[in-house]
């Protein structure tokens, strides 16, 4: 190790600004400080611990599912949570929960990563698949809908699939690896879409406390080390918001945290009509409409009208003159099914 340090310094590498000893190996996004590996890990882990304590994210004995995609954020989340749980005796029962969207060559790779995490951190793993839950894989959906609007399906189905998986595991909470960049992006998107209801709740560290399974985001204040985008939809609307945020960050790293702060401090006027939260008449999932979005989309798929439920029109079920299904019986999906909480 000593030799390594010498090597770095020789070529003008700076030393860590925390310990002033080791060679710096990362530039911390939040502060742009140059830090060595150990000091960065320590700073990061203690910051997450502080976030968990200050926001009372968990109580002892909680069963907690970690939404695990196999990507970097959820992998780090699984590692950090299991470490902090041991170190600070949170008393949590941790589980890994993965969604298999059925995207060949994409999800099968990352599910392998989740399997490695499962062995490495000794956490029980539950995988729920779109195929089992909805009767359709993403590959099959893309075949029908094309590449343009498939993100809508994937997003809506994933959200509900995580809740279904969490119900199977009978957990008290679901944690996800969403970081500050993701949340800032969502604030901007909700602003751009005029979605006041989501705008007012998207910055909360814990959401859905009134629903069956609350979700929380321990990485809410953590800046991405660098950005990633889904290579399957590089032109998605979200991509533009992400790029804009990354440009802002280049000029002033705090911009991301400031967008979150602005979102948090938004006050929605009391005269604004907010959608009423109810339950889906078809599957029982939380919904502000008669049918939840997943049921609307699924109904469209099963009836051979996959464009149903995409775009501005909301709900809309029961009003359209339903054409007879063009979809072959053999690939008819299941009904959304009831949520068993």
């Amino acid at each position: 190790m000593e030799g390594e340090g010498e090597r770095g310094r020789k070529r003008g590498g700076r030393v860590c600004c925390v310990c002033n000893k080791e060679r710096a190996s990362v530039k911390r996004p939040k502060t742009l400080q140059h830090m060595c590996r150990e000091c960065f890990f320590n700073a990061f882990e203690s910051e997450i611990h502080q976030v968990i304590i200050q926001n009372s994210l968990f109580i002892a004995g909680d069963r907690v599912a970690i939404g695990a995609s196999g990507g970097k954020d959820s992998t780090v989340l699984a590692y950090v949570l299991s470490k902090l749980n041991r170190l600070h005796n949170y008393g949590l029962n941790l589980f890994l929960l993965s969604v298999d969207e059925g995207i060949t060559g994409y999800r099968d790779d990352s599910l392998q990563t989740v399997h490695r995490n499962h062995l490495q951190y000794q956490l029980p793993l539950q995988v729920v698949s779109y195929k089992d839950l909805y009767g359709w894989t993403m590959d099959q959906i893309v075949d029908v809908i094309g590449f343009k609007n498939n993100c809508t399906f994937c997003g809506v189905f994933r959200r509900q699939a995580l809740d279904r998986g969490a119900a199977l595991l009978k957990v008290d909470k679901l944690v996800t690896g969403h970081n500050a960049d993701d949340i800032a992006e969502t604030v901007l998107l909700n602003l751009l879409r005029g979605d006041v209801a989501r705008l007012s709740r998207c910055t909360s560290i814990t959401t859905g406390e009134d629903g069956p399974i609350p979700r929380c985001k321990p990485f809410k204040y953590t800046l991405d080390y660098f950005s990633t985008e889904c290579i399957y939809s590089p032109n998605a609307y979200r991509g533009f918001a992400r790029e804009f945020i990354k440009d802002l960050e280049r000029i002033r790293p705090r911009a991301i945290l400031d967008i979150i702060k602005s979102g948090e401090n938004f006050r929605i006027s009391t005269t604004t009509k907010m959608p009423e939260q109810g339950t889906c008449q078809r599957c029982g999932y939380i919904s502000s409409q008669k049918w939840c979005k997943a049921c609307v989309l699924l109904d469209g798929l099963n009836r051979g009208l996959p464009k149903l439920g995409i775009g501005r029109s909301r709900g809309g079920v029961g009003s359209e003159n339903g054409k007879e299904s063009k979809v072959d019986k053999s690939i008819q999906g299941k009904q959304c099914g009831t949520l068993d909480f």
């Binding site: 190996s25 140059h34 590996r37 660098f226 950005s227």
Partner: peptide, 24 residues
Amino acid sequence: RPGVLVLVNDCDWELSGQLDTSLE
């Protein structure tokens, strides 16, 4: 390509000058 992290001897190349980092 953006999204590819580069480490020179375990150190982010942003700290060593990116494309101008001299190698030994």
